[in-house]
């Protein structure tokens, strides 16, 4: 979403300088972050980056060492607010934590009642969610007989049973086979259509790219935040791939003469040119190549995957200390 629009929206999560230390170990350092209403926010980072710790702080499960945060309109650290906060949010923890000896319906009933949902509303919600998850026919079987993917779906349903305004999902597709992962992902996309605010921890970059409006990359500190596209451009720069019949130094010179000095790499029949604004630069590149007598086969934009951006960021940080 455009930045101006984002700024005018209500903040669902507003964290400033959030820090968590376990003894000498700093798990999360000075995290400042805003997540807006209706947004799906992806939180990426390697193992041990502090994603789960962040979610636990934001859901009032563990305390902060320092910093402040407002989540769903409630201030962390105030008892009364935290109770209200837990009324408004839903959490899918890293471990599903279902009661294995009881059924999906019983698991959902328990949580709905803890949330003080009126009985009729509870029934309706349970049926709607289990039907959405394609679990309605298995609803009375003990959870112990479910597959991992089914359990994951029940756990997500549990997080949603009280209609939370803000949903935290800690690696919802971890350990799932591709098909189960897809059903869970499709379900998240359904929720996105309902304009729910979702905070999603994930290792899957393609998942983040497909689902999230914005992503943040964490490694104890927040390395960067932005839409997947913006991150790509900002961190990588744009590059244009030019395929010609015979690449040559003369063509490179023609391009740099026209666009100004820049990096151009040649490999095989392609030249990769660094550009700042593809819409403005690409026609110029074409003109330069043609003007210098080159025979143009194809001109296209190279965009790195979010994965490349991610790996580069994590590595840069790693070598920086």
């Amino acid at each position: 979403m455009p930045l101006a629009e984002a700024a005018s929206l209500v903040s669902m999560i507003h964290a400033v300088g959030l820090t968590k230390r376990f003894g000498n170990l700093t798990a999360v350092e000075e995290l400042s972050l805003d997540v807006h209403e209706g947004e799906v926010f992806g939180f990426l980072g390697p193992n041990g980056a502090g994603k789960t710790t962040t979610v636990r702080m934001l859901t009032s499960l563990i305390s902060r060492s320092s910093g402040t945060a407002e989540v769903a309109g409630c201030t962390l650290g105030r008892d009364a607010d935290e109770l209200e906060l837990r009324r408004r949010i839903g959490l899918l923890p890293e471990n599903v934590g279902l009661y294995e000896s009881t059924s999906a319906v019983q698991n959902l009933e328990y949580f709905g009642r803890l949330h003080r949902l009126p009985e009729a509303k509870l029934r309706a919600n349970i049926e709607r969610l289990l039907r959405m998850m394609d679990l309605w026919n298995e609803r009375d079987r003990p959870i112990a007989t479910y597959s991992k993917g089914m359990k994951q779906k029940v756990a997500i349903a549990r997080a949603l049973v009280h209609d939370p305004v803000l949903l935290f999902l800690d690696e919802p597709t971890a350990n799932l086979d591709p098909e189960s992962a897809k059903t869970v992902r499709d379900f998240i996309l359904e929720l996105k259509k309902e304009r729910r605010t979702i905070f999603l921890n994930t290792h899957h970059l393609d998942e983040a790219e497909r689902i999230c409006d914005r992503v943040g990359i964490l490694r104890t500190r927040l390395l960067t935040v932005g839409s997947p596209e913006a991150l790509r451009d900002r961190l990588w720069g744009s590059r244009t791939v030019v395929r010609v019949e015979r690449p040559s130094e003369a063509l490179v010179v023609a391009i740099t003469d026209r666009l100004g000095p820049r990096k151009v790499e040649i490999s095989g029949d392609t030249m990769v040119v660094e550009v700042t604004d593809p819409d403005r630069d690409n026609p110029e590149i074409a003109a330069a190549v043609v003007g210098a007598g080159g025979r143009l086969r194809q001109i296209s934009q190279l965009s790195p995957s979010l994965e490349e951006v991610y790996l580069r960021l994590i590595h840069e940080q790693g070598s920086a200390g």
Binding site: E84, R86, L98, L114
Partner: peptide
């Protein structure tokens, strides 16, 4: 063992 305390603690229960 079932790790069900975390989701329980995330409900509005003290």
């Amino acid at each position: 063992i079932e790790k069900s305390l975390e989701p329980l603690l995330a409900t509005p229960t003290t």
